[in-house]
């Protein structure tokens, strides 16, 4: 099974220098290392889940501590956060389609769907930055009240995760273009999409607990 060593860049179609341990598995699980890394990433997501749960706990405890300042009901712009939600849900779908096409070994389609996902992610971050700037212009800043500190930190931490995901996905797109689909790039596509779907899960709770319950 072992192919002879090439630099990956020289072997356009991928498996140069990659020792395939399990040819019968889905492509992302074909190396021992890949299988370990996918499980490890699941475990990391569990820790990230706890991180967000602590931020949510802080937000919920402090959400009524507005110190006479603006409340969620006054600040949140319904069309804006609804648009953010639909954009992120759609990007989770397009990311999933990239995984789907990866299993069919369609390199160009994987790249295409990942680019769509990145663009949707960028527009999400853009809308969020616009929302933050807008609020800050109205005097609703991080320093105004405990509620706003908790709001900006919780939503901002999610936004930072999305931004990091955009950079990461871009790096993987470059690697896909250079090396094609092989067990290593496939594992990377699979993992970055796990991360992306996970951020969607977190957003659903931001949408529900922060925004919907904020405008109720």
């Amino acid at each position: 099974m072992t192919t002879t060593a090439h630099a990956p860049a020289e072997n356009h179609h991928g498996a140069g220098h990659i020792h395939v341990d399990y040819p019968d598995r889905p492509v992302e699980y074909q190396t021992e290392d890949g299988a370990l890394k996918i499980l490890g990433f699941w475990v990391f997501l569990a820790t990230d889940l706890i991180l967000f749960s602590c931020l949510f706990a802080t937000f919920i405890v402090l959400r009524s501590h507005v110190d006479g300042g603006p409340t969620g009901k006054e600040l949140f712009d319904i069309p804006s956060f609804v648009a953010e939600t639909f954009i992120l849900l759609t990007s989770s779908f397009t990311g999933g389609l990239a995984t789907f096409e990866m299993h069919r070994d369609k390199r160009n389609r994987v790249v295409g769907w990942l680019i769509v996902t990145v663009l949707l992610g960028l527009s999400f971050v853009g809308l969020e930055v616009k929302e933050f700037v807008h609020m800050a212009m109205d005097g609703a800043t991080l320093q105004r009240s405990a509620f706003l500190s908790a709001f900006f930190t919780l939503v901002g931490t999610h936004g930072c995760h999305v931004s990091l995901g955009i950079l990461w996905m871009t790096g993987i797109i470059i690697q896909l273009v250079r090396f094609g689909i092989n067990p290593i790039t496939a594992r990377k596509v699979f993992i970055v999409n796990m991360y992306w779907h996970f951020l969607d899960v977190v957003w659903v709770f931001l949408f529900t607990v922060v925004y919907l319950m904020g405008v109720m």
Partner: peptide
Amino acid sequence: SGQHPSTAHATPSFPWQYVIGF
């Protein structure tokens, strides 16, 4: 075979699961 997704895990031609999920 390691370069390609294995036929043992045949993928459907239309992503029903993702569409329904969406």
